[in-house]
Design a protein around this nucleic acid. Structure first.
Length: 196
DNA sequence: TATATTTGACCGTA
DNA sequence: TACGGTCAAATATA
């Protein structure tokens, strides 16, 4: 297989200092996508490598890749697009999976939910069939780690829900709602069960 | 000094 | 050819 560098050389495409650049663009489908009223810290180390104003968007789109992309060949990337101003709403799209083992993701400790935030919408791609394909633990699951005792059974039940092709909206009034299943089901006091 | 972000230009794809 | 994704030099920050 020809390397990118060799491809560039063979095509006479040069690099910096009067040289042109050559790179491959991703052609992969998003791993998953999330909309949130807050910019949730997902526990991974991201490095911003660009931002762009897109045609039909009112706000800049930011491009991030894993900090350990070069060190550990981690291919994870994400895009953050602000889609609404009031209330603030962001769409985060993830591409690829983290293959890095960094201090940041060996022990994921996330910020607690902001009480002022109204809701978080998680949407899972059809290709998402296992927990391992989730690019990072859900904020809910990560937060539950703080509760060392109990909640394991309930956690498993919720975890299973997360693995299905549902849109689940968690709000901070301690309710969780299935958004896209055939039946609209609301889980009362979900967070209460976990001691939130 | 090392690392991260900004920013304009380059490049691939539709 | 327009648009969006990426590069990399310049700049900012710790």
């Amino acid at each position: 297989m020809e390397s990118l560098h060799e491809t560039c050389k063979s095509r006479n495409i040069l690099n910096t200092n009067n040289r042109r650049r050559c790179y491959k663009r991703k052609s992969i489908a998003p791993t998953w996508e999330k909309e949130s009223s807050i910019l949730i810290e997902d526990g991974y180390a991201w490095r911003k490598y660009g931002q762009k104003m897109t045609l039909h968007a009112k706000y800049l789109r930011s491009y991030y890749r894993c900090t350990y992309k070069t060190d550990q060949r981690c291919s994870a990337m994400k895009q953050v697009q602000r889609i609404q101003d009031d209330p603030p709403l962001y769409r985060t799209t993830y591409y690829g999976h983290h293959t890095c083992r960094s201090p940041a993701n060996q022990e994921i400790i996330l910020e607690p939910f902001s009480p002022s935030a109204s809701s978080t919408l998680l949407s899972f791609d059809n290709s998402l069939h296992s927990k391992q394909e989730n690019p990072f633990p859900s904020p809910l699951l990560a937060s539950i780690k703080h509760d060392e005792h109990g909640a394991q059974n309930q956690l498993s039940a919720l975890e299973n829900l997360l693995l299905y092709d549902y849109d689940i909206s968690f709000d901070y009034s301690r309710n969780a709602t299935l958004l896209s299943s055939a039946e609209s089901v609301q889980f009362e006091n979900v967070f209460g069960q976990f001691g939130f």
